[in-house]
Design a protein around this nucleic acid. Structure first.
Lengths: 256, 256
DNA sequence: TACTTTAATTACGACAGCGTACACACAGAT
DNA sequence: ATCTGTGTGTACGCTGTCGTAATTAAAGTA
């Protein structure tokens, strides 16, 4: 895990934790226990939260931003296996899981996260039946998302996957966020040029607008039409695990 | 779940369960409890074990054969998300998991499996801390496999993935098994013609031999050279969860 | 204002895998 | 011995995405 500067807003200040959907869905006692030891840090774009092989000292509850879980291949290529946001967490599912990061976690869209020592999380989850239940449901949702992604990558077009990625980012950070085409290209494992063509298509349709790294989602329903159904499958899976997304941060209206 | 004829070898006969690596790695008490209610059935090629949406009445512990976990897309296409064999099981991870199959399970290479009512499995796992532990480790290994597969499908060639598929099948059923090119093509989501070209390449190298649906793995080390490293990553993940594979069923020697 | 840097667009040939299709070959049945 | 069904080999043109790279445009800096 990278060295961090100071935590945000005094650190020991009790954060509400409301930005994290998984934390929000934990029973109050477990949540309070976790929040007591939590420190809020910024997640900066490009930052490596954990590298494959690192010892997992903290569980990272993402409040906003998009982190991609990256598989490092033998030839050095980085391939995104999944994305993580406020519905989930990085590291130590709890209990007797491996203490070592299996993959690399890379911040793609900036945000903030609560860092909690894994011993604290383990204690909270071990003692609380309901909390353990939430964790197991989250684990199921993560597996569901990954299985769907495997199928998605196998048969869906770069355009469909780009739309899905942007929709998921939108769910996690809202209408406006910083995202370069090169970053999206890395995430999707396609050329920057391909992303350029795809995004101008989205913009021509009025789904998005962007300008030098500043992405704006104008109409998520138009964007949804470019995406495959995998967006729905994955989203519903997480909703079932940690409850529906709080405020959808949607500016545009659903189609008539 | 499809209607089955009679169980194999009398049904109530206590099966050893040694063919199932996950069963073998459970503590004796839990394993005995599960085996008491287990019935062995054949898995026939092409058979649908569960269809997405089916109620999961039984947990299916695979002893031999290859089952593919298939995502049914909106347009009706079937895409393999993962393969399952003796290291794992189908259905009800236990505890408060969903009682409904999220995907479709299709037998690709014939074998046998133990069918156990999920209530029995739940009871065995709920009461036994060590058994729950094994299940959680298996869950981790399944997620690991799926994340690796997502990356694999994204960047590795059809040839590499075909070699991986055959290696994994070899681990689960041994040197000889029935497998048509059309079946492998469906599993990999490529044309049968592509499989034909790939397999003649493998055969020319001496890695495999085949004749009208009869596949024979001649030299798994040669086959490994055609594969990507994803085979190792996934295999090691399962070995860590349920112990090393029993007898590798290898006829050829490792390279010098 | 002019210069520099970084982001985005556009273009070209190359290639893996596609869809289709047809021809061949072996196994079992008559 | 021949026929028939099924599994396999091979060929054609097509498309999406690749790798590379040159061009344009906007933002920051002097």
């Amino acid at each position: 895990m990278g060295e961090h500067a100071d935590p945000i807003e005094g650190g020991t200040t009790e954060p509400t934790g409301i930005g994290s959907r998984i934390l929000a869905s934990l029973p109050p006692a477990a949540r309070a226990m976790i929040l007591r030891d939590a420190q809020r840090y910024p997640l900066d774009a490009g930052e490596v939260v954990y590298e494959a092989g690192d010892r997992l000292t903290h569980s990272v509850f993402i409040e906003s931003g998009v982190v991609s879980e990256v598989t490092v291949l033998a030839d050095g290529r980085l391939v995104e296996s999944s994305t993580i946001g406020n519905e989930s967490k990085i590291g130590a599912s709890s209990l007797l899981m491996s203490q070592v990061a299996a993959r690399t976690y890379l911040v793609r869209v900036a945000g903030t996260a609560l860092f909690v020592p894994i011993q604290t999380v383990d204690a909270a989850v071990r003692t609380d039946f309901e909390a353990r239940n939430v964790y197991m449901k989250l684990g199921q949702a993560m597996l569901n998302a990954s299985l769907q992604s495997t199928a998605c990558v196998a048969v869906h077009s770069a355009e469909q996957r780009a739309a899905r990625w942007l929709l998921q980012a939108h769910d996690r950070v809202g209408d406006d966020f910083a995202l370069k085409q090169s970053t999206l290209a890395e995430a999707l494992c396609v050329r920057r040029a391909t992303v350029s063509e795809i995004c101008s298509g989205f913009a021509a349709d009025g789904a998005i607008a962007y300008r030098r790294g500043a992405m704006h989602v104008q109409d998520r329903y138009r964007l949804r039409r470019f995406s495959c159904e995998c967006y729905d499958v994955i989203t519903k899976g997480f909703d079932a695990a940690v409850g529906d997304a709080p405020t959808p941060a949607v500016t545009s209206d659903p189609p008539a």
